[in-house]
Amino acid sequence: MAETNSGTPSPQRHDGTVRVKRGLAEMLKGGVIMDVVTPDQARIAEEAGAVAVMALERVPADIRADGGVARMSDPEMIEGIKAVTTIPVMAKARIGHFVEAQILQALGVDYVDESEVLTPADEAHHIDKWSFTVPFVCGATNLGEALRRISEGACMIRSKGEAGTGNVVEAVRHLRSILGDIRKITQADSAELFEWAKRLQAPLPLVQEIAETGKLQVPLFCAGGLATPADAALAMQLGAEAVFVGSGIFKSADPAPRAKAIVEATTHYNDAEILAKVSRGLGTPMTGIGMDEINVRMADRGW
């Protein structure tokens, strides 16, 4: 080994800092996080270029179809997926179910999604995410919800959309709501920021910070209903920094090429020529459902 001109190693090592936790979200930007329910699907996702996989027992479309209570996945199932992939593995805990989150942290998952796709465990409280080393992502339908989650320690926000529908309309609504309010806040004067904090039911310092920087404190990703490369590029052009695709891949006719095309579309989201190329011949996307056909709005879960 070559001779070093550096000094002694540093004792000031810190694990699980905000910078370390938000940092992994930075590394996932411009990428696609894919829902997988088996090790085989995890391999397909990684091979297609996913930046991370979300390990769960049923994709949202099946949770929606099956009804009943949806809970954290079996640790054995999560371990099975961890064993076959080298990319980060995420897993979902129920809203407010801090013990599920403790278990996921003990399993060594890379990100915990406190998710409305599962049946909430607490009707008033989300998890106090500051007390964990593992970082958390949380869903939001509007800026107030996003800032409440950030105040609880979320290190990444994903717009919720409506999971398991294959319908992008709610994702667009939520992204536009979050980013539109951020744009408006940057135009507000200092007195108006108090009213914004009240209206959003969000901590004033976070609102003031947004007025100054013009952006959310943590990376903003998009989820819920994305099914095509064009959907992914739409979310990116609207201002999302990465995308989650759940049922959209493995509920389609031919998952592997669709997964690859969505990855490529997320990178080249501003290049219509490439988008046209990667969108060709992908087979049938998931069928999808209209918002007037669903009984449960998962996006309404969360407080």
Partner: peptide, 24 residues
């Protein structure tokens, strides 16, 4: 990720203060 960390590094080429390095 749960093993990710940050630490101060001495980098002679840039001098003081130490560089805060984020390992993810």
């Amino acid at each position: 990720q749960v093993d990710s960390f940050e630490a101060d590094l001495r980098v002679a080429a840039v001098g003081d203060p130490p560089v805060r390095a984020v390992f993810i």
